[in-house]
Design a protein around this nucleic acid. Sequence first.
DNA 1: AAGCCCATGTAACTGGTTACATGATTCT
DNA 2: AGAATCATGTAACCAGTTACATGGGCTT
Lengths: 179, 179
Amino acid sequence: MSLRHAILGLLADHPDTGYDLAKRFDGMLSGFAWHASHSQIYPELKKMTADGLIEVINEGARRSRTYTVTDAGRAELRRWMFIPQAITPARNEHVLRLLSLASLDLDDTRVLVERLATTNDELTSALRTTLAEARERAQPGVRPGYSPLAMEFAVRYLDLERDWARWMLAELEKHAAES
Amino acid sequence: MSLRHAILGLLADHPDTGYDLAKRFDGMLSGFAWHASHSQIYPELKKMTADGLIEVINEGARRSRTYTVTDAGRAELRRWMFIPQAITPARNEHVLRLLSLASLDLDDTRVLVERLATTNDELTSALRTTLAEARERAQPGVRPGYSPLAMEFAVRYLDLERDWARWMLAELEKHAAES
DNA sequence: AAGCCCATGTAACTGGTTACATGATTCT
DNA sequence: AGAATCATGTAACCAGTTACATGGGCTT
């Protein structure tokens, strides 16, 4: 059950309401690591509170509850992170699609690969700008939280996707030329 | 519903039985793109046959049925691949874990990052060997199918994970030194 | 003939998505 | 006052996992 650990990780970065956790899941996180919607988050927060992993530190306006991790929660997060694991089942629709490129004809492949390259380049340049801005605002000695680290991953990943797609196209063209 | 398209993609590469599709899902595919178990695959193959996307081309020993994509299936696969899409929700427990590194202390972080680096390096070198062997056996003019392309992705991805983890560690150490 | 892997199937359960629902606060 | 957004909740449905079940064919 990774939702639980995803929430523990987010709250370990900083305390948050269910509503804001849902927003964080909609950002970088959903595209590359994990996703959850509020309808899954609220019930899970209740269960985790019952299990002593998190607790309410503030009840604010509009019935909002801010949660934070307890010591038990931190211990559980650490335990989970130390579980040795080789490859775990992942899900990535982009990769799935790109793998099917080999079954299209070369013209289609070229169109799709270039489209992907364009999209990814736009995304990464936007991310690089955001990252640079965040770096200027950063205070010395303050640990970088979740999201700049996630953004760095995203930038690297999007470049990998583009390069891999182009490499595949070249491979397919090479084999077409040989026959 | 991506399972359907995952199966279409696999069968577009080459016809296969439900049993062998399940095995292919257990390989590279499950770690980086998609996963499905036989209990999900068999019913889906029936539905897809009913919908005319695939058909049985051979009934072999032990009640085995070999499926292939129909023209309608190929058209559907192509249609799906051309749907423009920015970032789609992905799931990757590795990335999720690594994001929580910032909430551990530096000693724990060092241990985990080095463990990841070791595991990934072992995996990539094994993959590189397999890839090199496949390349020797490859016949000129024959399009590379799914799995060499998937392996290339895996190698690149595992390296990215390692590099990103090391970069994060360095960032965290830098900020610790400043305070 | 015993044991193993091939090959398919279903049922029960859990995780996750979509849709529906409602009240509280802020903004204009 | 009305609209937009904050904030939480639940119910119905669909996707995915785990467990159970069975028979065929190959090897020793």
